Amino acid sequence: SHFELRVGTITLHFDNISEELAEELEKLAKNGVHADEIRRWWEEWLK
């Protein structure tokens, strides 16, 4: 499923992401983690 995450002024787009993972990314964003860090985390997870 597709997921969009708003982090400050940036909107990150994720394809084929589980609800659980989407929730984890939302938690990171709410805790003030920068969009670049979240994207890096996601790319690492995909490997």
Rank of each mutant, 00 (worst) to 15 (best):
Glu43Gly: 05
Ile10Pro: 00
Asp15Phe: 15
Ile38Gly: 01
Lys27Ala: 12
His2Glu: 08
Glu26Pro: 00
Ala22Val: 14
Ser1Pro: 04
His13Gln: 08
Leu46Asp: 07
Glu23Phe: 13
Thr9Leu: 12
His13Glu: 07
Ser1Trp: 11
His34Thr: 15
Lys27Thr: 12
Ala35Met: 06
Trp42Ala: 14
Glu44Arg: 06
His34Tyr: 06
Arg6Tyr: 08
His2Phe: 06
Ile17His: 01
Glu24Lys: 12
Arg40Lys: 12
Ala35Glu: 07
Asn16Ala: 05
Ile10Leu: 13
Glu44Gln: 07
Val33Gln: 08
Asn16Met: 06
Leu21Phe: 06
Leu21Trp: 06
Ser18Phe: 03
Asn16Gly: 08
Asp36Phe: 06
Trp42Val: 05
Ala22Arg: 14
Val7Cys: 04
Arg6Met: 15
Val33Met: 15
Leu12Trp: 03
Trp45Val: 08
Leu28Lys: 07
Lys47Val: 15
Glu4Met: 02
His13Asn: 07
Ile38Tyr: 02
Ala29His: 04
Thr9Ile: 08
Trp45Cys: 14
Arg6Glu: 14
Ala22Trp: 08
Arg6Asn: 15
Ile17Asn: 01
Asp15Arg: 05
Asn16Cys: 04
Val33Thr: 13
Glu43Pro: 01
Leu28Met: 15
Asn16Ile: 05
Glu19Asn: 13
Phe14Ile: 03
Asn31Ser: 14
Leu28Gly: 02
Trp45Gly: 04
Glu26Leu: 14
Ser18Arg: 04
Ser18Val: 04
Trp41Lys: 14
Lys30Leu: 13
Glu19Arg: 14
Ser1Gly: 14
Leu25Arg: 00
Val7Asn: 01
Leu21Lys: 05
Leu12Gln: 00
Lys30Arg: 13
His13Ala: 07
His2Val: 07
Thr9Asp: 15
His13Ile: 15
Ala22Phe: 14
His34Trp: 07
Ile38Thr: 02
Val7Asp: 03
Glu19Thr: 13
Glu26Ile: 15
Arg6Gln: 15
Val33Asn: 09
Leu5Cys: 01
Arg39Pro: 01
Thr9Pro: 10
Leu5Arg: 00
Leu21Arg: 03
Glu43Lys: 09
Ile38Arg: 00
Glu20Ile: 11
His34Ile: 08
Leu28Val: 02
Thr11His: 04
Lys47Asp: 08
Asn31Arg: 14
Ile10Met: 06
Leu12Cys: 02
Ile17Ser: 01
Phe3Lys: 03
Ala29Glu: 04
Glu43Ser: 08
Trp42Asp: 00
Glu44Gly: 05
Arg6His: 15
Glu23Lys: 15
His34Asn: 13
Gly8Lys: 01
Trp45Lys: 07
Glu44Cys: 05
Glu37Met: 09
Glu26Asp: 12
Arg39Asp: 02
Leu46Ser: 11
Ile17Arg: 00
Ser1Thr: 13
Glu23His: 15
Ser18Pro: 10
Lys27Asn: 12
Ile17Thr: 02
Asn16His: 07
Glu24Trp: 10
Thr9Cys: 08
His13Gly: 03
Glu19His: 13
Glu37Trp: 06
Val33Gly: 07
Gly32Ile: 05
Trp41Thr: 13
Phe14Leu: 03
His13Cys: 06
Arg40Asn: 10
Leu28Ser: 02
Ala35Ser: 05
Ile38Phe: 05
Ile17Lys: 00
Glu37Ala: 10
Thr11Arg: 02
